[in-house]
């Protein structure tokens, strides 16, 4: 339960409220290893601890987390600078089914701050491109200013082996891309609905609508995976906060096969 101390190597402001931290162990030892979709508990000295998914490359040198300043702890976190020290416990939770999806088409649907937990999947898939069929990344945000990792997305869009579509809920005069909710990209996306694996991360409402749209397209609910969020204090199943019906999101999630949580996702105040 005692965190390991990491030093902030670099801070990158992604949007007005979202930032990326690159961390290295203070001890100089190797960083912890993780699977795409897993999260760590990040502890800010004297402030508190929050669960945040790893957003970096599974084979990268540093431990990378991207988050939005939304609560008390993340607001303090947003003021961290290179050289500051934070505590890290992890990794925790069930990863995305990157092994199960091998040999199949892959549809990755991200909404808003839901892209960072999916980015390690994209790194993995691009590093093992031959293992997968067609790969589609659909990403929706509120406005063009909210698009995360823009330079990287532009690089990915130039590739011939990745189909990438970005859409925004509200266009601006300088935005020439898609306007519309992320679900609107699904009907025309090139993948074989009968065998594709889908991975969804974003606000719970967006997950609900996206899963329904994928179902409409013909993707089986056992091939749809979603990443859910609940309050977490311990990340190991003791504190009780993350319960989602019978599930402990910290241990059984955050990534769930949709058919395991479908009924709960459509229920209020669970």
């Amino acid at each position: 339960m005692v965190p390991e101390l990491y030093r902030v190597q670099r801070v990158r402001q992604e949007t007005h409220d979202t930032f990326t931290l690159e961390l290295r162990p203070q001890s100089g030892a190797a960083r912890l290893t993780f699977k795409p979709g897993q999260f760590n508990m990040l502890y800010i000295f004297g402030t508190g601890e929050v669960p945040i998914s790893v957003s970096g490359n599974p084979t990268g040198a540093t431990l990378v987390h991207t988050t939005r300043a939304v609560g008390r702890v993340t607001h303090v976190m947003s003021r961290l600078r290179a050289g500051d020290v934070i505590g890290v416990r992890g990794p925790f939770g069930a990863p995305w089914p990157i092994d199960l999806a091998r040999g199949h088409d892959l549809v990755i649907v991200a909404g808003g701050i839901g892209l960072p937990p999916l980015r390690p999947v994209i790194y993995h898939v691009l590093a093992h491109r031959g293992d997968y069929g067609r790969v589609v990344l659909l990403y929706g945000t509120r406005t063009p200013e909210d698009i995360l990792f823009r330079a990287e997305l532009e690089r990915w869009r130039a590739r011939f082996d990745l189909e990438l579509h970005v859409t925004v809920d509200r266009g601006t005069p300088s935005w020439h891309g898609n306007v519309g909710v992320v679900t609107s990209l699904i009907p025309k996306a090139p993948f074989d609905a009968r065998s594709a694996f889908a991975m969804i991360c974003g606000p719970e409402v967006m997950i609900r609508f996206t899963a329904m749209e994928l179902e409409r397209r013909g993707v089986g609910t056992d091939h749809i995976y979603v990443s859910l969020e609940r309050n977490m204090k311990c990340a190991v199943g003791f504190c009780g906060h993350c319960q989602f019906g019978p599930h402990f999101v910290c241990r059984e999630g955050p990534v769930f096969a949709y058919d395991r949580v479908e009924d709960l996702v459509h229920r209020w105040e669970v």
Partner: peptide
């Protein structure tokens, strides 16, 4: 009942 929270 086992639920807990943490505090600094």
């Amino acid at each position: 009942c086992f639920c807990s929270t943490v505090e600094d």
